Amino acid sequence: MFGKSSVNRQVKAEEIIEKPIAQMNALQMYQYCIDNNYGEGMNKKWGVKHFALVEQALQSDEEVLMCFIGLHNYISTTKHDSNFAYALTNKRFIMAQQRVIGQVIQSVYLNNLNDVTLNAGLVFGVLTFDTIKEKFNVCVNKAAAQSICDKIHEILHSLEKSKATPIGEQATSSADEILKYKNLLDMGAITQEEFEQKKKQLLGL
């Protein structure tokens, strides 16, 4: 059911993700899962179909921070809802499955997600997502389960930390960064176009 894949868990200190997943399409999201050992219990054709639903569900101001594949509503090896594509964004947790007839798309906003826990066995690992309405389990291979759980907690912690930063401090930080790039512009180290682009990025324009 699950194959082997290389594990890549190195994360740059200043980044939540190593690749710009927010800009990826369904095929690239599927490949991201394979490359990072974030579950691979489905063939490529159906994996891309599931992630296509995730791609279509994204809002204009929503960014995918990580994604993975697993058996949804897992109870046992014979009792589950088969493979789903999952994506953790800056706003919510999205679950999607394309079926031969019909489709399933569910989401939980992050402020309604209480906790994510891991129960690892000899072969498989079960991630339990505790929301304000229900709990549901996702089963993946043991190595993938630990990687996925670690990544989810890392991202949730980073999002909470950014929310906790006072607005005044954020504004000061942005002003300092703009000044730094203005100095680089004055020195000729960057172009006017690069400066304007960075300025818009820092101001959130």
Rank of each mutant, 00 (worst) to 15 (best):
L156R: 09
S174W: 08
L156N: 05
A171P: 01
K180T: 10
Q28N: 08
Q98H: 11
K4V: 05
Y30S: 01
E134T: 12
E40V: 04
Q31H: 12
D130Q: 14
Q31F: 10
E196K: 14
K199T: 07
L65G: 02
V64I: 15
L179E: 11
M187S: 15
E160N: 14
L118K: 03
I101M: 10
A57E: 06
N112V: 02
Q106N: 10
Q56T: 08
E160C: 14
A26E: 03
Q23P: 01
K142H: 09
N90L: 02
S82V: 00
I17K: 14
V140N: 12
A57W: 01
Q59F: 13
L110H: 09
M42L: 11
T78A: 07
T128S: 15
D186S: 11
L53A: 05
A171C: 05
I190N: 10
A26C: 04
M95E: 04
I17S: 13
K135I: 03
C33M: 00
I16Q: 07
P20L: 09
V138L: 01
I148P: 04
A87T: 02
I167K: 12
L53C: 05
M29A: 09
A175P: 13
G102T: 00
N43V: 02
A13R: 13
A96I: 02
Y32P: 06
M187V: 09
P20D: 11
G70Y: 03
V104P: 15
S162I: 09
Q56Y: 04
K200H: 07
M66V: 02
I75L: 09
S147R: 09
E14P: 00
S5D: 08
Q201Y: 14
A143F: 06
R92G: 03
K163R: 09
K79P: 03
T172K: 12
Q98W: 12
A87G: 05
F124R: 07
E160P: 04
V108Y: 08
E169D: 11
I152W: 02
S5R: 13
V11Q: 08
V104A: 11
D115C: 05
L202P: 08
E63G: 01
N43Y: 07
L156A: 04
S60R: 06
L71E: 11
T128M: 11
K151Y: 02
E15Y: 14
F51Y: 09
E55P: 01
M66L: 11
V11N: 06
L65H: 04
N37S: 15
M29Q: 10
Y30H: 05
T191A: 01
